[in-house]
């Protein structure tokens, strides 16, 4: 019955445009994967985000390993101290800075509003974002790990260390991600852009991320390790040098994740 109003009749290859209503949601898993793929493509296409997520950490690793002695990294082989710290920096850039900026602009341009009218639930949207973050982090950490090994990085602790590192990265992602969303959901896009970059730089310089907490004055060092970035970086340095997982690091990350999620859920504005 719809033959006469199908798609252009002169192109037989073109599927018919059947406009009869047939509403329905795709399965949740399919939606989450579709969303994660879309966000991942967008990040990989964005030069500034890639610079922050990949290029800067790799350059820091290279420069830090080559320019020995400029910054005191404390005891241990330089590259073994540096690589886990740069990994933590990469997680910070992806889960906090990139996520905050991208989400703030999604709010500004009505993407979140538009998706609010689609079958994608807020929980699925969030799951898609986390999945996309984990994909980006896999890419980042593989690249950093590979460069580290090329520069002589020799992680210790075997499989247990690797699993602990994954646990820390996942906790760190949830925790930094919830704080990124807190910023994106309350501030204007421009303010988030400036703020998220500023936080990134401050934590890079003074947050015990790349430079171990032991190299800072005591009070600053302990303040830094009570922040998510410092806890993640110290934790990664410890487990990857074979010291095993200190539960205080995981606890700090969990506490921040709970605080961040609770505040985000209360304050996030979708428009």
């Amino acid at each position: 019955m719809n033959d006469m109003r199908g798609a252009d009749a002169t192109t037989p290859a073109m599927p018919r445009l059947d406009l009869t209503p047939a509403p329905g949601s795709a399965p949740a898993v399919k939606m989450v994967v579709a969303h994660a793929l879309m966000e991942t493509k967008l990040v990989l296409r964005n030069g500034e985000q890639l610079l922050l997520a990949l290029v800067i950490p790799l350059l820091l690793l290279l420069a830090g390993a080559k320019a020995g002695g400029v910054v005191d990294l404390g005891a241990g082989r330089r590259i073994d101290v540096l690589t886990p710290g740069v990994m933590a920096l990469a997680v910070l850039s992806a889960a906090f800075t990139s996520l905050a900026i991208a989400t703030a602009y999604e709010r500004r341009y009505g993407v979140l509003k538009r998706l609010g009218a689609s079958p994608l639930s807020r929980a699925s949207l969030l799951a898609g974002k986390v999945l996309s973050l984990l994909a980006l982090e896999t890419l980042q950490l593989s690249a950093i790990g590979a460069l580290g090994v090329a520069l002589g990085w020799d992680p210790d602790g075997g499989l247990a260390a690797a699993l602990s590192a994954v646990l820390l990265v996942v906790l760190g992602t949830l925790c930094l991600g919830s704080l990124g969303l807190l910023m994106a959901g309350t501030l204007r896009a421009e303010a988030t852009l400036a703020g998220a970059n500023l936080v990134y730089v401050l934590l890079l310089v003074a947050g015990a991320v790349v430079v171990p907490a032991a190299s800072y004055p005591d009070s600053l060092g302990s303040l830094a390790t009570s922040l998510p970035s410092g806890a993640l970086a110290e934790g990664l340095r410890e487990v990857l040098s074979g010291e095993g997982l200190a539960w205080t690091r995981a606890a700090v990350l969990c506490v921040w994740a709970v605080i961040g999620s609770a505040m985000t859920m209360r304050t996030f504005k979708w428009e």
Partner: peptide, 30 residues
């Protein structure tokens, strides 16, 4: 106004939203 990622390509955006539905229209035909 608005409602799409500024960097998303037109058809890519349409395919993405189509994938959120159970029986979407043919993207090519639309």
């Amino acid at each position: 106004t608005g409602g799409a990622w500024s960097a998303a390509r037109a058809v890519e955006m349409l395919r993405y939203v189509a994938s959120l539905h159970a029986h979407p229209l043919s993207v090519d035909a639309l």
